[in-house]
Amino acid sequence: MTTKIRFEGVGRTFPIRGGRERLTALEDIDLHIAQGEFTVIVGPSGCGKSTLLDLLAGLGTPTSGQVLLDGEPVTGPGVDRGIVFQQYALLPWRTAQGNVEFGLEAIGVPKRDRAELAREYLELVDLASFADRHPHELSGGMKQRVAIARSLAYDPGVLLMDEPFAALDAQTRESLQDELRRIWQRTGKTIVFITHGIDEAVYLGQRVAVLTSRPGRIKSVVDIVLDRSAAEDIRSTPEFARYRHEIWTLLHDEVVRAQELEKEAVSA
């Protein structure tokens, strides 16, 4: 398998207290992600998960080490990576169709082809009949499906997802998780998915990278091997529970530490 994404000794610090001190968000991140792999990154809140994704997106630069995409260092944002945000980031004045076309406009797809492509991807996320609706007329789950369609439409090799289902209710989240897996299998995208949900991580990921609390380091990478055809409700199988517990154990101490850090920060 070819390596698609490589984090090599990546660290990121931010100036705080008026630049007198620096906060270390990420430290010494080494992670290889293969072409077409579905990787989930879990970690306690404030551990730098989103920072990690920003570095990969090219929206920030590492203070040490480098991020490589197809062997080339990431120097800025690009349409070879699509981002799905937790807050959907839909343009409220555009219809679902218009929002999907927005990404296509950015890469200069001619007008005629845009409408057709946008249609196609709205169909992929099962929203073809809502093409002319504006975001405020759509439910949270529908909005996120539009955002996913938008990111897929301009055909990036990598899909970066920053807690995309965190704002959704449990049922909607599960159905979107299924849909995302289906889309991943159909399109063969490399997906980097950030979450703080252990169930979500185990259910979606081929590999789950667990981050430590601040400064974020890779604590462990767990390979998830589940026979998904074995049971209808994979989440209730003993294997699923075993993985779940494994990651829970890895995370538990980190969550406790993260909470202590938060308390310190508030009382400081």
């Binding site: 997106a57 090219g58 929206l59 800025g76 944002p77 690009g78 349409v79 990576r81 699509g82 981002i83 945000f85 807050q87 959907y88 980031a89 343009l91 004045w93 927005f102 990404g103 406009e105 950015a106 890469i107 301009y154």
Partner: peptide, 27 residues
């Protein structure tokens, strides 16, 4: 203007004129 929209525009490498016309102005 909603910062996530600006982040989206940035992630798509939208050139400044398009950013103003398609995001900032309508917002």
């Amino acid at each position: 203007v909603d910062p996530t929209l600006l982040k989206l525009a940035r992630s798509l490498n939208l050139p400044p004129p398009a950013l103003f016309r398609k995001v900032i102005l309508p917002a």
